[in-house]
Design a protein around this nucleic acid. Sequence first.
DNA 1: ATGGCTGAGCTACTCAGA
Length: 258
Amino acid sequence: MKIISWNVNSVRARIENILDYIKETNPDIIFLQEIKTQNENFPSEAFKNKGYNSYVFGQKSYNGVAFLSKTKIENIKNDFIRDKLKQSRIITGEILIDKKKTKLINIYVPNGNPVDTEKYEYKKSWLTSFIKKVKKELTINSNLIISGDFNIIPEEIDVYDFKRYENDALFKLEIRKKYRELINLGLNDIYRYFNGSKQEYTFWDYFAGSWQKNYGMRIDHFLVSSNLLENLRSININKKPRSKVKPSDHTPIELEIN
DNA sequence: ATGGCTGAGCTACTCAGA
């Protein structure tokens, strides 16, 4: 099955692009982030018409995450961690992969900039709570797929010019160490797992011709527990949606697993 | 290069993103 993660930067502003993408790619499950709408305004009908169920944890104006899925996702929850600011940043559910009960965790990690503000503190405490909960989760379920917009550049090769980002909330060592902590729980960065030292990005700023100059960064990830490695087939960053008219600033990553 | 786009909410302009 094909599982996709995409920060769409508003599901309503992006609806045509998303429907085109679905038609071209035919994914089984999509993890959406930054839907920027409340549940009642989510375009569930448009997705229903294409054969997808919607599972939404929305919020007015900002944030918001959702699953789209051709088949039912069980045990949908939005209380994986207690969010101090009550922002809609995690939705979880369960599916079967190769008869293994697998937990899907769709996340939109706080950006954290500027670093000398409470926004940065929020990102750190959010990540600390998240790591703690993932660790606990792994004691009861060894089949996890965590994906979404992590707002973390894991290593120097994951950004066009790392020196520019050394004091940025996406690349500060303190934040990258949180990512490593997560990995060290027994999770695998699947893009790296398949691609060695290849340099590809999932995000390009709207301004200053970042896309045209390929001034990007890899901040959207798939982390998969070791127990599921044998089921992985491929991973792909699909740059096509970023090249279209009225694009999101992020592009989808596509995981093939069965 | 701490903001030069973009979106939401709203109908003038702020907040947020990365």
